[in-house]
Design a protein around this nucleic acid. Structure first.
Lengths: 110, 110
DNA sequence: TTGACATATGCCCATATCGGAATATATTAA
DNA sequence: TTAATATATTCCGATATGGGCATATGTCAA
């Protein structure tokens, strides 16, 4: 047994830059977009787009609706909330950092 | 060429659950903690802890300070900000979802 | 039906990665 | 110097993963 059992969650899914690009494209593309639109928008080979969409689908980061012979994808942001919340827990760290820098710049920090 | 050139960034680093655990432990453990503390806190073999720390270090998610024969690690939250910001861009998605649910519950949504 | 279009899958290869165990390296104490 | 402590590194095996390409599947149009 190597590798922690393929934990396929949102964190793992968005680790891949391409997958983040897809989500970004969908988010900016308005409501729903089909695969062909994504392929043109991103300029990658279609199978690749479909595969990454597959991962995003498994994790629930995108939703699909069949529309005739095409499939309309849309972002399912709900699944991104855990990531947001988790990172937010560390907010105080970068805030502290900023405060410290600011204080130093103002000449009152140590 | 397979696999997108080992993009070693914060996103990739936190994809690993163990690494998130380490960050969490460090965050709750107060300022700095040494490796031994982490090993006891997490209950994992020491090499494993060191290896994951190595990745976090490379990405800049933790800082190290040598203190005698031990190394004090601390969270460098700054590096987590991009993740937070990125996820935040999708905030409207889960907010919409919540609003929709809420509206439905209140009997005024469609 | 048949053919064109849209999308998903399967297969293969190269490589990254995790866990485990042993060991190297550094530093303090005796 | 030598032993002990603290931590990092290396080697290994198993496995997951991404890209490329070919192809299967599904759906509409003629």
């Amino acid at each position: 047994m190597a590798r922690s059992a393929t934990t396929l969650d949102a964190f793992a899914a968005i680790a891949e830059p391409r997958r983040r690009e897809i989500l970004g494209a969908l988010a900016h593309g308005g409501g729903e977009q089909d695969v062909t639109w994504l392929v043109e928008e991103l300029g990658w080979p279609q199978p690749q787009v479909s595969k990454h969409l597959g991962v995003l689908r498994e994790v629930g980061l995108v939703s699909v609706v069949r529309k005739g012979r095409r499939r309309m994808y849309s972002v399912n942001g709900e699944e991104l909330k855990p990531v947001y919340e988790w990172a937010k827990e560390f907010e105080r760290f970068w805030e502290n950092q900023l405060r410290r820098i600011k204080e130093r710049a103002e000449g009152r920090g140590k």
